[in-house]
Write a protein that binds this DNA or RNA. Sequence first.
DNA 1: CCCTGATTCGC
DNA 2: GCGAATCAGG
Length: 170
Amino acid sequence: MAWNDERVELLKKLWADGLSASQIAARLGGVTRNAVIGKVHRLGLSARATTTRSSSPRIRRAPVRRQQPKQNTVVYATRGATALKPEFEEEPETVAAPQPVEELVIPLHERATILSLKEHMCRWPIGDPGEDDFHFCGRRSDTGVPYCEHHSRMAYQPVQRRRDKRSATG
DNA sequence: CCCTGATTCGC
DNA sequence: GCGAATCAGG
């Protein structure tokens, strides 16, 4: 699969949105996360917005070198110190579609409450927070992404065009 | 063990 | 330019 302009644009967008390489790869299809990362680097946008999170002093010695390199291999014994590394927590800040409507019915045993929610669980709210049956989707979500595949699509929906109001809603 | 991005280098 | 293999880390 080639990197046409469309795919590159989508890659840029998703990367800027904070999606992980594997997530992006899954969305694009036909590429692995390695391909995505490689492309990201080639495009020079690995900085990922303003925060420099992973650009902390990460010292890399002994590169990859699968083949017979030189007999003259230098061995570094240094370890990187990460003591003073500042840490910023920045949320993807994506706007979820403000729909209190539940389009899904989650089986009782799969429902997640605020207490049972884990990082890898979809935190899409279902129902009314004031009601007893309020719960979260709770299905598997990729780390870093707050929602499962299904709800991710809703949350990250491109910007709906609402020009055509007259046409009936599907 | 699951994941993350980073890097190298044969293609 | 591309991306698998690998590395380094969470």
